[in-house]
Design a protein around this nucleic acid. Structure first.
Lengths: 121, 121
DNA sequence: TTAGTTCTAAACCGATGAGTTGAATATAGC
DNA sequence: GCTATATTCAACTCATCGGTTTAGAACTAA
């Protein structure tokens, strides 16, 4: 895997343990111990997952006595959502062909050119 | 990485070459040769990337003489978008606290309980 | 200072990922 | 059948990933 921001974000999300950690963090800050609790996994492994999430910018860490509480930072998810959103027209209606979808778009907003929206990676 | 559908989708998206291929496919079917053209990479490597995309359900293949045209299937992206969407409230407005965001949600739609939407992985 | 708790660093291991090269397969056209 | 083109398979390399264990660092509390 290369190492641009979007790749790091998607790579971080590719692991179900990390997705579960993000879900937990969406309820509020948590320590490594609290994050490790649901998993049959060493603290060190959880610590490593946190490093991956941190490198992706999805988590920031603090310090509270011995504890290093982790806090969710969802901003990279906005970029990921934007990227995926460019493809929304392709799943918008599985029974509707892309052609008729574009036709309908043209009707709604005749100025736009919806056929050329996926030039970036 | 484990091997559930969502993990396969995110893992497939974690590679910039594969994202570029999806972008190309959003303009229409393409053969391996056409997909390989922008990259300094062997056909075999492109073929492998296509297998990953196929395993993630993002691409389906056909047959046209010697060619095995690939076609975009964006449906798995809808599931990925849904997952990420659960976190939209956390990036919705970086200057607005989560608390006031939830307050505003309550005002708009007093029946819902937006505080408990992230129980799944 | 000593002991206890929480977390991370380091070294290691097996599995997987992304790429290569070279041979094999599938199809078309002659 | 023979040859050319498009694609995949197989075997290999090298790096990274997810996990472990052991030891050490950061901090608190006696």
């Amino acid at each position: 895997m290369s190492t641009d921001q979007l790749s790091r974000t998607f790579a971080a999300l590719a692991d179900p343990t990390r997705r579960a950690m993000l879900a937990r963090l969406s309820e509020g800050e948590a320590t490594v111990g609290q994050l490790a609790e649901p998993f049959a996994m060493s603290f060190a492994a959880v610590s490593k997952h946190l490093r991956v999430l941190e490198a992706a910018g999805l988590v920031s860490r603090g310090r509270d006595a011995q504890y290093r509480p982790a806090r969710l930072d969802a901003r990279p998810l906005a970029a990921a959502s934007d990227w995926i959103g460019d493809y929304a027209k392709f799943w918008a209606d599985s029974f509707e062909s892309l052609g008729s979808y574009l036709d309908r778009l043209q009707q709604t907003n005749p100025k736009s050119n919806p056929a050329k929206e996926n030039d970036d990676v």
